[in-house]
Design a binder for these strands. Structure first.
Lengths: 216, 216
DNA sequence: TTGTGTATAATCGTATACGATTATACTAAT
DNA sequence: ATTAGTATAATCGTATACGATTATACACAA
């Protein structure tokens, strides 16, 4: 008997490529050649192809017929679109979650905020930021919803990181995080929901605007 | 030179499997064996596996490590969850779409409703129903949003078909469709949005309830 | 009977191999 | 010089082959 659920080769490749894309090591429009990736990982093309198909449906990769895959590029308006979708889904999630939140949820969320206070690496901060948001949504017990939100988050994470390395947004974001968490603590759905929506809408607009400069 | 974008074998298999799942020919939990499917289509396993990976991320198939794939089964509560997500995203879509709707959009939407009046086959009706809804959202010019909605629709389409074959919901649905379209015509976002939300919430509840009887 | 172990078959996951498609470099003609 | 055409290389997509994992059947002991 071997490891009960050893990740499949395709999963390993997908994980690695995903990380390299999110961290910015692989840049938008950069080609992802099957042979090259396979050789690098010391495996064949077959699992590599499956990994690329997976990442395609996650929106991180674009595959062109017989022309191979490239890292997906999001335009400013597409990033804005993703943030609108996130706002719609994440407000739903927090609405359903608040009634089920427990004391330990609040403690752990507060803990994350404090760690983020001392985290200045943009990539780490982005990951902690997702963990914080996920914590607010998990009590909703809506796993499919959470998975969709996670995918949307991962779609724009690269651009968030890029933005954070240029602009100091930490203090502002942290202030909003603390406010939203406080509203959750008091069970105030009526105010927590629009605050979260504003938090996301504002971030989306800032990042889209930031990208537009590059595009122009 | 051959056909410029002839669909890849994997895409053909995915399309076929998707149709067979949505139409109910392949039932929930039914195993999807790679060799069997490949032999049936006269191809090898490689593109078959890619098709299954694709359908997995669409939520129509579940793959277990070294144990193969089965048609995904949605519990009543999962169907309800999908409908909540649809309500969140589709209200966003229609809100953004209404200001951009043109006369020809209204004509075509009305045409679809009339065709649906005479469509009694549940599968056909379900497809037309999607086309009608998509028509309401397309003017939003949010392709990623539309694609997500399409996936969610396809997740529950089987159960809609199943429900429609047992219960006569056509008249009620058509009445709501006409009302929503009329509100779009007059640019009444304030009322169209909650009407659409009610339309979806109601359908979701009915279908979830219907499924619960089977589960119990 | 019920459970446990082992042999066999079925199925999966991936490496290798190869034809098909697309990109690139080079030649020749206008 | 620019373009069109062709040969060559690079890359993709899929068939075949095979080791690895899991399921099944059956013998045997408690």
């Amino acid at each position: 008997m071997t490891d009960l659920d050893a990740p499949t080769t395709a999963e390993l490749i997908a994980k690695r490529l995903r990380y390299d894309i999110l961290s910015g090591k692989l840049k938008p429009l950069q080609p992802l050649r099957q042979d090259e990736i396979a050789a690098q990982m010391g495996v064949s093309k077959i699992p590599t192809r499956e990994a690329l198909v997976q990442l395609k449906t996650e929106g991180l990769v674009v595959i062109h017929q017989n022309r191979g895959a490239v890292v997906a590029e999001f335009s400013a308006s597409e990033v804005a679109e993703v943030y609108e979708m996130r706002a719609a889904l994440e407000t739903l999630a927090i609405r359903r979650a608040i009634p089920n939140m427990t004391k330990s949820d609040f403690v752990r969320a507060e803990g994350l905020i404090e760690i983020m206070d001392d985290t200045h690496d943009a990539l780490n901060w982005s990951e902690l930021n997702w963990e914080f948001h996920a914590m607010l949504y998990r009590p909703a017990n809506m796993p499919r919803l959470l998975e969709h939100i996670r995918m949307l988050h991962s779609n724009v994470a690269r651009y968030v990181v890029h933005y954070l390395t240029s602009v100091d947004y930490h203090a502002e974001a942290q202030r909003q995080h603390r406010l939203i968490l406080q509203l959750c603590r008091t069970g105030n759905i009526a105010q927590a929901t629009p605050q979260l929506e504003a938090h996301l809408t504002q971030a989306g607009k800032k990042i889209a605007q930031f990208l537009k400069k590059d595009e122009g």
